[in-house]
Simulated scan of single mutants.
Amino acid sequence: MRTILNIIWLVFAGFWLAVGYALAGIICCILIVTIPFGLASFRIAAYALWPFGRTVERDPDAGVFSLLGNIIWFLVAGIWLAIGHVVTSIPLFISIIGIPLAVANIKMIPVSLLPLGARIVDNDQSRTSGT
C-alpha cells in the first residue's frame, strides 16, 4: 500500500515539491554560508519525493547551532513552507480521495518548519516505533 501511495504522491505532488526543495538547496549551497540550510533542503526534497513509510525524528544531540539555524530558517522560509503545505492540503482533503496525500502534506510541516536537527528515517528504524 505504501508503494501505491508513494507513486500517486510522486505523480501529483511529490515531484514538484522535491524539485522546489532541491532548487532551494542548490541556491543555499552556492551561497556557502547557508550550506547547512542547503543540506536540510536536500533531505526534505528526498522526503517529499517518497514520504509514505518514513517519519521525522528529532536528534536530541543537535546542539545550539541547530537551534539558532532553525530560528533563522523559521523566520525566513519555514513559515512560508508550512503555509504552502497547509494550502495545498486543503483541496486534497476536500477531494476525499486525496486525504492520504493531504495527511502526508501535513506530516511534512514539522520538518519544513525546523529542519536542522531532524532525521528522516524509515518507520521500521524509528526509535519511537518500538515504544
Rank of each mutant, 00 (worst) to 15 (best):
H85Y: 15
H85L: 15
H85Q: 10
H85D: 07
V86G: 06
V86C: 13
V87Y: 13
V87G: 04
V87W: 05
T88N: 14
T88R: 14
S89T: 12
S89P: 04
I90C: 06
I90P: 00
I90L: 12
I90F: 08
I90H: 04
I90S: 00
I90V: 12
I90M: 03
P91D: 08
P91F: 08
L92T: 01
L92G: 12
L92D: 01
L92S: 13
F93N: 07
F93V: 14
F93P: 02
F93T: 10
F93E: 03
F93W: 13
F93D: 08
I94V: 15
S95V: 05
S95D: 09
S95N: 11
S95P: 06
I96M: 13
I96Q: 10
I96P: 04
I96V: 13
I97G: 11
I97A: 14
G98D: 04
G98H: 01
I99E: 02
I99H: 09
I99Q: 08
P100A: 00
P100I: 03
P100V: 01
P100H: 03
L101V: 10
L101A: 15
L101H: 15
L101D: 08
L101W: 08
A102Y: 06
A102H: 01
A102K: 04
V103C: 11
V103D: 04
V103M: 14
V103K: 14
V103W: 13
N105P: 02
N105Y: 02
N105I: 01
N105C: 13
N105K: 14
I106H: 06
K107S: 15
K107E: 10
K107L: 08
M108T: 02
M108F: 04
I109E: 00
P110T: 09
P110A: 05
P110W: 04
P110R: 06
V111L: 09
V111F: 04
V111A: 11
V111E: 07
V111Y: 05
S112F: 05
S112W: 00
S112T: 14
L113E: 02
L113W: 05
L113K: 00
L113D: 00
L113Q: 03
L113N: 01
L114H: 03
L114W: 13
P115D: 03
L116R: 06
L116W: 00
L116I: 11
G117H: 04
A118Q: 15
R119S: 13
R119E: 12
R119F: 08
R119Y: 11
I120C: 10
I120L: 12
I120S: 10
I120G: 08
